[in-house]
């Protein structure tokens, strides 16, 4: 049951750490790296609050062990924000008040950006479907769908 040494990139920074096998990636970035923007809502893979990117793809970090991320490139909401990649999406969320308590928001942003990267001009039903694994108790989703839709349209207008 000893710790395993892992080396990975987190938000572009190279990290090495000793982790117990049972430590999941959400708890690893929160507790060991202080990246508390990744939120833990259910710890059994249903609520989507802990969604982050591993090697460019969104994953549930509560359903990923830290040891599985060895050698991977991990992006959390802190890194995604600093990179400027979703600055427009964040601005749309702000303008549309597409968040209230903000707890679901990092996971929601990752999932929305995942859709926007795959589908340039999603219908509202497609947005709802893609976000259907991310629970939000506050907004009723309407504002989030609006914000994602507006971002998609704005990106389409970009030269």
């Amino acid at each position: 049951m000893t710790a395993t040494r892992i080396a990975l990139m987190v938000n572009g920074e190279s990290i090495s750490a000793d982790v117990p096998a049972r430590l999941n990636l959400a708890d690893f970035v929160r507790d060991q790296l202080g990246l508390t923007g990744t939120h833990v809502g259910c710890e059994h893979g249903v609520c989507g609050a802990c969604t982050m990117r591993v090697d460019g793809e969104i994953v549930r970090s509560c359903l990923t062990l830290a040891v599985q991320a060895d050698g991977c490139a991990v992006e959390t909401i802190e890194g995604l924000s600093d990179s400027g990649e979703i600055a427009d999406l964040q601005a749309a969320f702000r303008e549309r008040n597409a968040l209230q308590c903000g707890y679901c928001t990092p996971g929601m942003l990752f999932t929305a950006q995942d859709l926007l990267l795959k589908c340039a001009n999603p219908e509202r039903t497609e947005i709802r479907e893609h976000l259907s694994g991310n629970y939000c108790r506050c907004t009723g989703y309407h504002a989030i769908v609006d914000a994602v839709e507006r971002t998609a349209k704005a990106r389409q207008r970009r030269p």
């Binding site: 929160r30 923007g37 990744t38 928001t105």
Partner: peptide, 23 residues
């Protein structure tokens, strides 16, 4: 007026401070 909330940027960047984050 529909003024955007001043605390939103913090929450949008994962820089909120929830009790579950506190050490």
């Amino acid at each position: 007026q529909s003024v955007p909330r001043p605390n939103l940027d913090r929450l949008l960047q994962g820089r909120g401070q929830y009790v579950s984050d506190l050490v």
